[in-house]
Design a protein around this nucleic acid. Sequence first.
DNA 1: AATATTGATATACTTTAGTATAGTAAGTTG
DNA 2: CAACTTACTATACTAAAGTATATCAATATT
Lengths: 121, 121
Amino acid sequence: MSVLSEIEDVKQCPKQFVLAINDTLNVMNGKWKMPILASLLYGKNRFKDIQANIEKITPRMLSKELKDLEMNGVVKRNVYDTTPIRIEYELTTSGKNIVKVLDAMVEWGIEHRKTVVEKLN
Amino acid sequence: MSVLSEIEDVKQCPKQFVLAINDTLNVMNGKWKMPILASLLYGKNRFKDIQANIEKITPRMLSKELKDLEMNGVVKRNVYDTTPIRIEYELTTSGKNIVKVLDAMVEWGIEHRKTVVEKLN
DNA sequence: AATATTGATATACTTTAGTATAGTAAGTTG
DNA sequence: CAACTTACTATACTAAAGTATATCAATATT
């Protein structure tokens, strides 16, 4: 095997990595996913609370996005059989672990602003 | 200060963190940013090469997204005064550092698939 | 001299994402 | 019993993102 093709092998991204990145981007994309995740990390978990927490989100979008996040295994919907019925949303373990990705983003973003402002590179 | 407000202080996300996360998402969003970054990480750097590397991207989108990435300080456009003129795109230092974020995404995505498949949580 | 390549841009169109507004069912409060 | 709250859904719309197709200027190739 040539050196070049070896390098190519190393640099080519395995398909499961591409999948993983896509999965991650899917739970963050759109205008409202991040605010919703942040709201749930922060602690708000009832529909009306989240809606109040994220000003300007319409119930349609909140409903749609929560369903989406639930289907993606990031949010869990708990129905309590109290009277009146109470519904609470919470992050799954995976959902909570997204902070790790957010940390990496914060780090990159802050570093990036520094280099861009300093006009390095 | 009450215990509750202390907790709120801890859990609230500083504005610069929000900015940093938004910056990071901006350089990854849309259908083509990731393939373009990947193509440049991999080594392809001329317009036609990138276009060939990413099948189905139209020149309009490639042009638009490269400009966008350039404006965001992630890609550098080098014009070589050879004959014929040659233009090469390369990642800036910040651009290269995005792999750190991608690593976090790969890690989360793989772990997430595991837990979802195993139906934990 | 005709054709191909590079690095694009212009125009018109379609598709997807998000908004505005209204309404519903089940229960609670005054 | 009228009004309000919670947790939504339906319909119709607008805005943003992406596509298709054509074109262009500069140079290279045959």
